[in-house]
Amino acid sequence: MENFGLSQIESVWTKERTNKDLTELPEDFYDKSANYATEIRKEKQSSREIREELLEEELSYILEIIQEIYLLRITKITNNLYEKKNENLLKKERKTFEKMREELDDLREELIKPVLEKEVEMKPPEEKSNTLVLLSSKISEPITASDLNYYGPFRKGEVANLPRKSAELLIEQDLARRIDIRNIFDS
């Protein structure tokens, strides 16, 4: 890139914005961009009024598009971190993102792999047990029990075999009494 300047920076910026993949970038692109920005700053100090304003605008513009080039490249590299098609990486980018990939692999090993490989302790399913109750009140509408089935309607004095949790709720609300079968046969 002889006579490096604004047109070369804009060319790189345009290529990076219009290509889906990472574009080829000279290893010294950022160094040359920094030197060019330094030249503009020096020239601005010795310029007056309109020329100074124009140089300030050019400097701002250059800094803005160089940052955008950087962010576009970082985004593309990050999106392709696990793909081997990053042949257009600068040496510094390749080294940094290789370290990042290794760190992410280590993090995966530490957090995810144990979850995938660890033997899971299986708990026995909760025993489904029903409770016999004697209804002490009339319940004129069917109820949805804890097993999501409908029971009822019930007449006062009727015996019902309900899921334990639902039976306990009826007992707590004084709508039913527990019938203990063992007590009946013990007498």
Rank of each mutant, 00 (worst) to 15 (best):
I77S: 02
D106M: 15
K20V: 09
E53L: 13
L71C: 06
S136H: 01
N86Y: 10
E121Q: 06
L134D: 04
Q67Y: 11
V133P: 05
E64V: 04
I77P: 03
I69P: 05
K138M: 09
S136W: 01
L54S: 03
Y82F: 15
I69M: 13
I77W: 13
D105L: 14
E52H: 03
K92P: 00
E53C: 02
L22D: 01
E27L: 02
I50L: 11
Q67G: 10
K85T: 14
I139G: 04
D31V: 01
L63S: 14
T78Q: 03
K44E: 11
M100Q: 02
R108W: 04
L63F: 10
I77M: 04
E49M: 01
L25Q: 14
V120A: 15
R48E: 07
D31Y: 01
N130T: 12
Y36Q: 08
E119G: 11
E56T: 15
Q67C: 03
E121V: 05
E109I: 02
E103T: 02
I139M: 05
D31W: 00
N86D: 07
A37S: 14
N19G: 00
E27R: 11
L135F: 03
R101L: 13
L107K: 07
N19H: 12
T75G: 05
S11A: 15
K20P: 02
D28C: 02
A34K: 10
E64H: 13
K84M: 03
L59S: 13
L63K: 06
N35V: 01
Y82C: 00
E58T: 06
E27W: 13
I74Y: 12
D21N: 13
R108M: 04
K42H: 05
R94W: 02
R101C: 08
L54E: 10
N19E: 12
L71Q: 10
I50W: 01
P114M: 14
E58I: 13
R73K: 08
K32L: 14
R41V: 00
K91E: 06
